[in-house]
Design a protein around this nucleic acid. Sequence first.
DNA 1: TGTTATGCATAAGAAAATTATGTATATATT
DNA 2: AATATATACATAATTTTCTTATGCATAACA
Lengths: 111, 111
Amino acid sequence: MKNSQLYKGSLNTIIMKLLEEQGRMYGYEITQKVKEITKGELNITEGALYPALHKLEADGLLDVEVEKVDNRLRKYYKLTEKGTTENVNRLAELEEFIKNIQTIVNPKLSY
Amino acid sequence: MKNSQLYKGSLNTIIMKLLEEQGRMYGYEITQKVKEITKGELNITEGALYPALHKLEADGLLDVEVEKVDNRLRKYYKLTEKGTTENVNRLAELEEFIKNIQTIVNPKLSY
DNA sequence: TGTTATGCATAAGAAAATTATGTATATATT
DNA sequence: AATATATACATAATTTTCTTATGCATAACA
């Protein structure tokens, strides 16, 4: 993956946004979804994803349900109530951040 | 500063873009310019800025000229030829990154 | 039967910030 | 005159958040 350091810090917001949209998802599903949406340009590594999911869960923002499908384990995550609230804030912050960056690197597009 | 972790990785690109625009700038001037452009929302810390400038210089992307103004030191930085080329690439990557993030968190705006 | 896909996890290391601190001069305030 | 704020640089310790590498296990495909 190129420009990987750029998305530092935005992974948590991406995860939460997808969970808000999809209701619930398991880890591997999240990586595939992001790959699909970005046409292969953004690939979330497992070493980044799983620790992030665990931290969000530990922080009370996600709930987890373990299921066995085709004899393979899946851990389905969904937003808690706290997570839903927090998601709104983080999305707002991300939008604000993007707006600021745009103002700097592409003044023409900012109005 | 809020959402500080979001701009991890984009600092170098911000610096180079401003230098491209302004011709040459010194460190403190960069922090003030960013604060001004983003209406105080993005504050570059000195602990992030100066090491970043030193690294860009070490990588041959920036040239430095030391001047004394009002008995105070200023280090003016400008893009080298290599830096100018690299700036184009990094800006393109940043735009691409922003587009990808937008596609994920705000599908309505992506087309 | 070996490779690819699915599905989880963690440890070691690197990158890039924050926070705290230090030095020094100039200007504004009280 | 004394003090605080602004200007201007710098670095060390720590933290956060990734990458890379590795490990385990099952299913599907060639």
